[in-house]
């Protein structure tokens, strides 16, 4: 064990001890904050998966991914407008609307992301490495521009159609839990499980893993690289679209540049878990959500940003491959 590893463990231990102290002082508040952190973290995880998959396969920091996430929220809000939904109390129409809109939005976002990949990234596959990075930034501006043009700079209302109110909240030993919190976590777990099954069990999933490992060798083995990369973007956008809708259902507020910061935090989560590593991104997202919630409550919300990015730098210095660290980002 080197000195650097030793330092890393010391810092981790100190953080855990400080948190444990808080947990002992006021256990109810601690559990409550954990619930909030888990719900936020679940959403970060869904976005982080898209970053990690794309980075894993073409080493591109896809700056537009956060905006794909927000656009998913905007589009689902628009589609929900067609239903006779009831925001006051939960109705059958609400349930039908949610069940219908989820797959529709996911597919739309998948289609949009494939189009983006086809237009902005594929022609640049053999160009200098920074060229697709700039087009990614460009596409990010384009998506934000579309949303800005659509609803302006002010925040956009997302219909509050999940069961909420007195009948759908409960206090377990002083901890306030709503249906929404459970819904967000459950949906995220289902989606991540489906993704894991897809990546590990299907032929396309295998092709994606092979392409990420060695693109040329994969091509020699008869894998259609273009199709595999497009599939990666498609699946990343499925999750981001679902994430956008969940975000809307949970917070009921969206704004056009929400994806910028959410994307940055999600990318941090992906690096935190070991970029390119799919379970790592999910765990990283949840951890970042928790850290943000603890920092908001126990330190001060104004330092949360410093805490998150400080951890990012610390992880990269002490643990360059991330927490799970299976894949090494290398040119």
């Amino acid at each position: 064990m080197s000195l650097i590893d030793f330092l890393f463990y010391i810092i981790c231990a100190a953080a855990v001890i400080l948190l444990a102290a808080q947990a002992v002082i006021n256990p109810t508040a601690f559990v409550q904050i954990t619930v909030f952190g888990l719900a936020d973290g679940a959403m970060y995880a869904l976005v982080a998966l898209g970053y990690t998959m794309v980075y894993g396969i073409i080493e591109l920091i896809n700056f537009a991914h956060g905006d794909v996430f927000t656009l998913g929220g905007y589009i689902s809000a628009a589609i929900l407008g067609f239903f006779a939904i009831n925001e006051e109390s939960f109705s059958v129409i609400n349930l039908v609307a949610i069940l219908l809109v989820f797959p529709v939005v996911m597919l739309i976002m998948g289609g949009i992301n494939i189009t983006i990949e086809r237009i902005a990234y594929r022609p640049l596959r053999n160009a200098p490495r920074l060229a697709p990075l700039i087009t990614a930034i460009g596409m990010s501006f384009v998506l934000e521009g579309i949303m800005f043009l659509w609803h302006g700079p002010a925040s956009v209302h997302f219909p509050d159609i999940l069961p909420h109110g007195l009948g759908y909240q409960t206090t377990i030993a002083g901890v306030f839990v709503t249906f929404k919190d459970g819904f967000v976590m459950a949906t995220a777990i289902v989606l991540v499980t489906l993704l894991a099954i897809f990546i590990n069990r299907t032929k396309l999933g295998k092709a994606m893993r092979a392409t990420a490992q060695d693109r040329d060798a994969a091509q020699l083995m008869g894998i259609d690289i273009n199709r595999t990369i497009a599939a990666t973007f498609f699946i990343g956008a499925l999750l981001a679209g679902a994430g956008g809708m969940i975000w809307g259902l949970y917070f009921n507020n969206l704004f056009y540049n929400l994806g910028f910061r959410t994307g940055l935090v999600a990318f941090t989560s992906a690096v935190f878990g070991g970029i390119g590593n799919i379970p790592g991104a999910a765990i990283g997202g949840v951890l970042i959500g928790l850290i943000a919630a603890y920092s908001d409550s126990y330190i001060n919300s104004k330092w949360t940003e410093v805490v998150i990015f400080g951890i990012l730098i610390g992880v990269l210095v002490f643990r360059p491959t991330g927490l799970l660290g299976m894949r090494v980002p290398e040119k």
Partner: peptide, 24 residues
């Protein structure tokens, strides 16, 4: 207002187009 609100969109399109036309 419509054009004013399109500034982002236009800037993004300019970036993408230039990069596609002259990747280097």
């Amino acid at each position: 207002n419509e054009v004013q609100y399109s500034q982002f969109l236009i800037f993004g399109l300019i970036l993408v187009l230039i990069m596609l036309l002259r990747p280097q």
